[in-house]
């Protein structure tokens, strides 16, 4: 895997989640939360732009070509980021898992042998620490709230759990970059991640889901059926006017 492909993959992770989160503005449980969700979405979308910007420097295309002119099969984000989250419990469950991952992953990425990646990671890591504080607090509130919210959170956690394994499974081609110290070793982050997530689940009175299923394929462009409709909505206007400036 080239450095370019790795950077685009991380950019896709951030874009796809940012797009999902941005859809919450005006639809969250109350107004204050709308603003909070929007801030989180802005962080992820901003991160995507930084990564695509770096990809362009590495000889890739510009950020809008990455975002708007590729089909689902060309996107290389991990599946957990693309899951729809029209349900608040699902949004919270996914967010906790990725925020807990981000904090660990970005912390390591800050030490990347690649100075550009390290710089992007340094900015993103601060955001991630705040995100995790928020998502952990939400998980506890909802897990240890009413019987209904507890059930919803437990179910949401079961529904996203099978997508977490991919966070820690580097694709074969990534390994060269890990050896060069450009990318962190994802697999090595899992024990710490699991400990952090388990502790939050415990505080939230939720059960750790049984890990008897897992889905992957995002880095190879093998997505869930949810990605293409999301891209159709996101890309429609841009693609309807080829070559136009906005």
């Amino acid at each position: 895997m080239s450095l370019l492909a790795a950077v685009v993959g991380l950019g896709d992770d951030a874009l796809v989640l940012g797009q999902r989160l941005s859809a919450w503005c005006g639809k969250s449980p109350w107004l204050e939360e709308d603003l909070a969700m929007a801030n989180t979405a802005l962080d992820f979308l901003g991160r995507a732009r930084l990564l695509y910007g770096y990809a362009e420097q590495l000889g890739g295309c510009d950020e809008d070509a990455y975002a708007f002119q590729r089909d689902a099969r060309a996107f290389t984000n991990l599946l957990i980021y693309e899951l729809p989250c029209a349900d608040f419990a699902l949004a919270c469950a996914r967010q906790l898992l990725v925020d807990a991952f981000d904090v660990l992953h970005l912390e390591k990425l800050c030490d990347s042998a690649d100075a550009n990646l390290a710089g992007i990671a340094a900015k993103a890591h601060k955001e991630a620490r705040y995100h995790r504080r928020r998502s952990a607090a939400w998980l506890v509130r909802l897990g240890d709230g009413t019987a209904e919210s507890h059930c919803r959170m437990q179910k949401a956690m079961e529904d996203v759990w099978g997508y977490h394994a991919e966070l820690f499974a580097p694709v074969e081609a990534e390994i060269g970059l890990v050896e060069k110290g450009v990318l962190p070793d994802r697999a090595a982050l899992r024990p710490q991640w699991l400990a952090a997530v388990s502790a939050t689940l415990d505080e939230a009175t939720l059960e750790l889901p049984s890990a008897d299923w897992q889905v992957d394929g995002g880095r190879r462009g093998l997505h869930t059926e949810h990605l293409a409709p999301m891209l159709a909505e996101m890309q429609h206007l841009h693609r309807s006017h080829p070559g136009a400036r906005w």
């Binding site: 449980p29 909802l142 709230g145 009413t146 919210s149």
Partner: peptide, 12 residues
């Protein structure tokens, strides 16, 4: 849609 969330944070 947010009613269950509101109830949950109050209960918590």
């Amino acid at each position: 849609d947010g009613a269950w969330v509101r109830e949950a944070v109050e209960a918590h």
